[in-house]
Design a protein around this nucleic acid. Structure first.
Length: 676
RNA sequence: GGCGAGGUAGCUCAGUUGGUUAGAGCGCAUGAUUCAUAAUCAUGAGGUCGGCGGUUCAAACCCGCCUCUCGCUACCA
């Protein structure tokens, strides 16, 4: 194995268009923090780098919506995010931002270097341009009718209604969302990084030399590499970002994904004039902590950029977590389905470690996981309170009770004492092994075993009984319990820094080095402090309040967030009368094979029995809708879908969250009844 | 559509190069215990390892097909 002399740890840059939530913490920042705290305790040279990603189109859209400048948006969220991380004890050496001067200079230099080396390909293409707003339109700024499902309001890059990804030029009747005008096509030049050029190198580097990467990361890279890489545009027509620093770059900025990872470099520069040794020395190890949505950027694109530049090292590992869900649903900023860190800090003061613990114990390391408040409560009450907090409390209380809080001297150790103490180095080794291979969940579990060991030791030695007959023996027992407690304060430091600190206060000791674990470091006669509680039980009412809050916020936001679609143009009565809508009864329903959404329905329209293909399979099961009365447009011209002729259309009401429901008469009526 | 990851005890997850009775934590049951925030300790129940088929003396693990979940996906439509 390669020997490294220093480690550079980067954490994905959170996008500064909203606060951060538990998903961010669980996926990236807590594991990264555990890792660097561990390395620091071992006395290694390590930097933890982070910062806010402040460029890109969504920020300009948010600014426009709120009537403020993009800088206002990022200032606001950068401060909230930075503050949340600090309060959760994420021990950044530097937490920077991509809108600052150092970064603009660094990114600009980087681009120029590649440009001068001839690493870019320049290409001209046609893009939509809004003449009135005098700017090119990013895909997200163009809406129109989806060429596939014909629904309106599709974006230039994707139709949210049918999920298809699109090219802006495919949209029917495209509109600029800035002015509402019809945009025109205009030629524009962009710089592309020819990823295909680095493909052979990347294949060797990842597929051959980094088989130890996590399966999700390795698999994703392999998928990309096997499919072949293509040149990728690294500039955009936009005015918010790092300006393209070469001729012809006026009015253009670096693509946010080109600019953001360079943010790691700028942040390091900002932190230390010695930044180059972390980025360029062969004996430096770089590790990127990211979420699974970032894999391709950190494993393919950024390495290609670094390779193109030529003087940088590439990451040694890219531990990427999957996603954390919340109470069974995907975490979503726009739907406000999240536990926000700044809110948690207010509502659960002094409980940072509880969340750190729960998120580590249930981290989405191998697959998406679910965070529930009930699990949060259970882990706090049954693990932190009952196992860790309780053991420490027992040890301290007994020491005060029998020996006035002075560490007693151990007498001769019996076999059980020796066996117990011998467990400590074993646990230490297990924790190390797991931390070094990025298995934080397992590492934490092993660390908790030390507290379990303590509880078992007490149960087996029963000092509260022995004290009546053999005080000398109890001195030995308590000495060992205090040794375990001391070791716990060190072992838990990477995971639960606040509690480890509190425990040291109880024990009245200074921070220790990782290598002290397993050594007898607590002095005989040392006075310990009066114990208070390391963790407190969390009551049902507290948890219920959080669940209620979540549900209420969700409901409120759904109502407020989704504006009702504006009314369409007026039509005359004759137009309306052209539509023949009837009440029909569903008599048969079956799922159409190999489709996600489609059901084949047979409907009794009163006029006839007819077949209708309807995209409702995600909302209704075939067996539960038979006999249902629905509204059906009977004179829509037939259309073949998946080889089945659909003769009409079932009318559905679509809720803000996309949920469909039938439009049905509120009492049974005869099939064929007209709806007017 | 193509591709990737995942589907192991009620819940959350381990299972090394295929090798005996498939493990852990939480939850549950029973017992012990009272120093401790009714916390702790011991014991136990609970699994056709997503489904079907194949390779093998031997499959949770290798191969094929199917299925469910999550994700990625092209100047493809």
């Amino acid at each position: 194995m390669k020997k490294f002399n220093r480690t550079l740890v980067t954490t994905a840059l959170p996008y500064a268009n909203g606060p951060v939530h538990i998903g961010h913490l669980a996926g990236v920042y807590v594991p990264a923090d555990i890792y660097v705290r561990y390395l620091r305790m071992k006395g290694e040279d390590v930097l933890l780098i982070g910062g806010s990603d402040e460029h890109g189109v969504p920020i300009t859209i948010k600014a426009q919506k709120e009537g403020i400048t993009p800088q206002d948006v990022v200032d606001k969220y950068h401060n909230i995010i930075k503050d949340s991380f600090e309060k959760f004890g994420i021990s950044f050496d530097v937490y920077s931002r991509t809108s600052n001067k150092v970064h603009h200079e660094t990114a600009s230099e980087f681009f120029k270097t590649l440009h001068e080396k001839g690493e870019f390909v320049e290409k001209t293409s046609e893009q939509y341009y809004d003449a009135e707003a005098n700017q090119f339109l990013a895909d997200r700024y163009i809406t129109g009718t989806c060429p596939h499902c014909k629904s309106e309001g599709a974006y230039g890059d994707q139709c949210e209604s049918c999920g298809t990804s699109l090219n802006a030029t495919d949209l029917i009747d495209p509109r600029s969302s800035i002015t509402g005008n019809k945009p025109e096509l205009k030629e524009t030049k962009h710089w592309y990084l020819p990823l295909d050029k680095y493909e052979p190198y990347l294949k060797q580097w990842i597929l051959e030399e980094h088989k130890e990467w996590k399966p999700n990361v390795y698999g994703q890279c392999k998928s990309w590499l096997d499919n072949g890489l293509h040149p990728r545009a690294v500039t955009r027509d936009l005015n918010w970002g790092v300006p393209v620093p070469v001729d012809g770059g006026e009015g253009k900025v670096l693509y946010v994904w080109f600019d953001a990872p360079i943010g790691y470099i700028s942040a390091t520069k900002e932190h230390t004039p010695d930044w180059e040794k972390y980025w360029k020395a062969e004996d430096s190890k770089m590790v990127h902590f990211i979420g699974k949505d970032n894999i391709v950027f950190h494993c393919i694109i950024f390495p290609s950029m670094l390779k193109a530049e030529g003087s940088y090292i590439l990451p040694e590992n890219v531990p990427s977590n999957e996603f954390l869900n919340l109470e069974g649903d995907k975490i979503s900023t726009s739907r406000n389905w999240a536990v926000w860190l700044h809110e948690y800090l207010e509502e659960f003061p002094e409980k940072q470690d509880v969340l750190r613990y729960v998120l580590t114990a249930n981290a989405p390391e191998t697959k998406d996981n679910d965070f529930t408040w009930k699990d949060y409560q259970a882990r706090n009450n049954n693990e932190l309170v009952a196992i860790l907090g309780n053991f420490v409390n027992r040890a301290l209380v007994l020491t005060h009770k029998y020996f006035d809080g002075k560490v007693p001297a151990a007498g001769e150790l019996n076999d059980f004492d020796k066996e117990t103490l011998a467990e400590i180095p074993t646990i230490k080794a297990q924790v190390e092994k797991n931390l070094e291979t990025y298995h934080f969940r397992e590492a934490l579990k092993e660390a908790m075993n030390l507290a379990r060991l303590g509880n078992k030791y007490l149960a087996d030695t029963e000092p509260w009984k022995v004290i009546k007959t053999d005080e000398e023996r109890v001195k030995t027992i308590m000495n060992i319990c205090l040794q375990i407690s001391t070791n716990l304060s060190t072992l838990m430091e990477p995971f639960l820094p606040f509690s480890a600190n509190k425990l040291r206060e109880f024990l009245n000791i200074e921070p220790l080095a990782w290598e002290n674990i397993g050594e007898n470091v607590i002095e005989v006669g040392h006075q310990i402090n009066k114990a208070s509680l390391l963790f407190e039980k969390i009551e049902d009412a507290t948890i219920q309040a959080q669940v209620d809050k979540l549900l209420a916020t969700k409901a409120a936001n759904e109502a407020a967030n989704k504006p009702v679609t504006p009314a369409k143009e007026n039509i005359n009565f004759d137009d309306f009368m052209k539509m023949d809508v009837r009440v029909g009864t569903i008599t048969e329903a079956e799922k159409i094979a190999k489709t996600k959404k489609l059901l084949k329905l047979t409907v009794d329209t009163g006029i006839d029995q007819r077949t209708v293909v309807s995209g409702i399979a995600e909302h209704y099961k075939p067996e539960e809708i038979i006999g249902k009365q629905v509204s059906i447009l009977v004179n829509l011209e037939p259309k073949k879908l998946k080889g089945i002729e659909s003769q009409g259309m079932i009318l559905m009401a679509e809720d803000a969250d996309g949920k469909l429901s039938f439009v049905s008469p509120d009492q049974a009526v005869k099939p064929g009844s007209e709806i007017r």
